[in-house]
């Protein structure tokens, strides 16, 4: 980062607040809606202070009804506004799923772009904070399967701000998932002004020529930790933070595996039907003859996310990833 840029030290959740503030200032059509997003500043304080700055007309506490919230925001979006909806936890979005899959994502196609839905839905997701039942879901693959929807997941404060700004400016619906386990994991320098990071572009976190590891959200740091251990044993990993799960960054995935010939995909979601399978499809289509070992997946299990005494057993950790690194290099 250039020294000429003014920066501030922010956590992921603070960077999200900062992005919302920038967008509310920059564009009068931006609205923030959700349960407890007003005076309370959101259950994770992601909208902290925005109600005082922008008022009840633009930072709106709504009734407790996810379908109502998403459905009425579709109407706002079709008629000139850019709503940013907060769903308190990804596991609470399901009552609004119908509005997302039958309307928000189809209105552009159905009306041949006469009406469009520039709607951003933000939701914390994933396990790792000892939360009650249903609060720890990582069901991103339910959403990447919906035509017409982009799915974005940041893993650090800088990306969180830039990707959220791009999501709000995007002309179509975006589901922006926030890894709550690392919401406050540490502060990083984040530019004070507005900036955007293009959707659909991955980010290389570490360079290596032996194994490619693909991850997103809270799993990026876990993958980096495993890569550090591998490096101590002479195995160098290319760690890629995919950042956008739809559309995936095909070029970066292909370039990386064509160099390493080995791939591991990490996610905390269940294995079957996971986004990992789409990464495998890209590798298959672009790089089949470059591969020196079968692709490995390190994922959660095909079980409901367990209550929290077992959540550390459920999600991938650096040991499980390290084992996969050993397996693909020994093959």
């Amino acid at each position: 980062m250039s020294t000429a840029v003014n920066t501030k030290k922010l956590t992921i959740v603070q960077a999200i607040t900062d992005a919302l503030k920038e967008m509310l200032e920059e564009d009068e059509s931006v609205l923030v809606l959700g349960e407890d997003v007003g005076k309370n500043g959101g259950v994770f304080r992601a909208t902290d202070g925005l109600y005082d700055l922008f008022g009840d007309d633009r930072v709106i506490d709504t009734p407790l009804a996810e379908s109502g919230l998403i459905g009425s925001s579709i109407g706002l979006a079709m008629n000139g506004f850019r709503p940013v909806v907060e769903i308190q936890f990804l596991g609470f979005i399901y009552p609004g799923f119908n509005q997302l899959i039958t309307h928000a994502t189809r209105i552009r196609t159905r009306t041949q772009s006469r009406y469009t839905v520039p709607l951003t839905i933000r939701a914390p997701y994933g396990s790792g904070v000892r939360a009650p039942e249903i609060h720890s879901d990582s069901t991103e693959a339910l959403f990447t399967h919906i035509p017409g929807l982009k799915v974005v997941i940041p893993s650090n404060p800088y990306d969180a701000k830039g990707l959220l700004i791009s999501s709000i400016k995007d002309p179509d619906p975006v589901l922006f998932l926030e890894p709550m386990r690392i919401y406050r994991a540490g502060k990083e320098d984040v530019p004070s002004e507005s900036y955007s990071i293009p959707l659909g572009k991955a980010s290389r976190k570490r360079t290596g020529d032996d194994v490619s590891i693909f991850a997103w959200g809270a799993m990026v740091r876990v993958a980096e930790k495993a890569a550090e251990e591998a490096s101590e044993n002479g195995i160098e990993c290319d760690v890629i933070d995919l950042r956008t799960l739809y559309p995936l960054d095909k070029e970066v995935i292909a370039e990386s595996v064509q160099r390493t010939g080995r791939a591991i995909i990490v996610h905390e979601a269940p294995s079957t039907g996971g986004v990992s399978n789409d990464v495998m499809e890209i590798i298959n289509d672009t790089s089949f003859l470059y591969m020196r070992a079968p692709i490995k997946k390190v994922t959660g299990y095909d079980t409901p996310v367990p209550l929290f005494t077992l959540e550390d057993d459920y999600a991938p950790d650096s040991k499980k990833i390290y084992r996969a690194i050993e397996e693909v290099t020994r093959f």
Partner: peptide, 23 residues
């Protein structure tokens, strides 16, 4: 709007577009 097939779902879009007019 195009005819809504999912029952009652369009009620929310009418509410949202009218909310936008109010705003």
């Amino acid at each position: 709007f195009p005819p809504s097939v999912p029952i009652a779902s369009q009620i929310l879009h009418a509410t949202g577009t009218a909310w936008a007019e109010q705003k």
